[in-house]
Computed example of a mutant assay.
Amino acid sequence: MIIQKQYKFYAAHRNEELTDKCRNLHGHRYGLICHFEVERTGALTTLFGDFDAQIEPHLKEHYDHGMLINKSDPLYETLKEHERRTGERFRFKEFDAPTTVENLAFTLFSEIIEMGFRLSHIEVRETDSSVITYTREDWIADNRDRSRLSGEKPSAVRE
């Protein structure tokens, strides 16, 4: 059985490797739709609140009104230096790769799996007209070949 739950959060990011408008720091109201696989054990399988009790606080603490940032982005060190110099603190969600919606989906999928939930897939909405579907098969492939996250060639293919 599939149970579907929807969430949203606001976050800033940039795609530092691009040369278009997305290289600029900007924000999105991200939408997340989780498709949970559950086993029917009786008349009541799962309370929707069981999902919300873990996922909503996680999104609020780590994502909402924060900045998704690649630790290799030169802007990251600039912002960290600003924090050291001024004592001001930013909410960073640090990535080891570009903050693309694909990498966001990988990260969210991984975190939700770590909470003990079984996902068939998630949908991540970056804008009203731009949504990706990220499946368990995508997650397995990304874990098998981490070069997919950075866009590098797999080590066996490098020249």
Rank of each mutant, 00 (worst) to 15 (best):
W139K: 07
V131S: 09
H65K: 15
R84D: 07
I3V: 13
N15D: 07
T99S: 10
E83F: 05
E17R: 14
F36H: 01
E77C: 12
I55N: 01
V38L: 08
V38N: 05
V101Q: 12
R136Y: 06
C34H: 14
L79F: 11
I122M: 07
L25Q: 01
T45N: 13
V131D: 01
E94C: 15
I140R: 09
R118K: 03
F36D: 01
E152K: 11
R144P: 00
L68F: 14
R136L: 14
R144K: 08
I112S: 00
E39V: 05
I55F: 03
A105N: 12
D96P: 06
N24V: 12
H13F: 02
M115R: 00
F51T: 11
Y7M: 04
K5N: 11
E17W: 09
R158A: 11
R89M: 00
I55E: 00
R40Y: 05
F109Y: 14
I69W: 01
E61V: 09
V38D: 05
L59A: 10
D142C: 07
I3S: 10
P57F: 12
G116R: 02
N70I: 11
E56V: 08
K8A: 14
Q54T: 06
P57Y: 13
D145K: 07
V124P: 00
T46V: 14
R14G: 02
E152Q: 13
W139Q: 08
D20L: 03
G87F: 02
K80A: 04
N103K: 12
M1L: 04
S155E: 12
R91F: 10
L18S: 03
Y63R: 08
A53T: 09
E152T: 04
K60L: 04
A11T: 04
T107P: 09
R14H: 12
R146T: 04
F36L: 13
D145H: 03
I2C: 12
T41D: 03
E37R: 10
M1A: 04
N103Y: 11
Q4T: 11
F51Q: 15
L68V: 03
G151Q: 10
E61P: 00
P57C: 05
D50H: 03
K5V: 07
R91K: 15
I122D: 00
W139E: 10
E126R: 01
L149F: 08
T135E: 05
N15S: 14
A53E: 08
D50E: 13
Q4I: 15
E37M: 12
K71C: 03
F36R: 00
G42H: 08
P154G: 10
T45E: 15
T19M: 03
I55P: 00
V38H: 08
N143D: 10
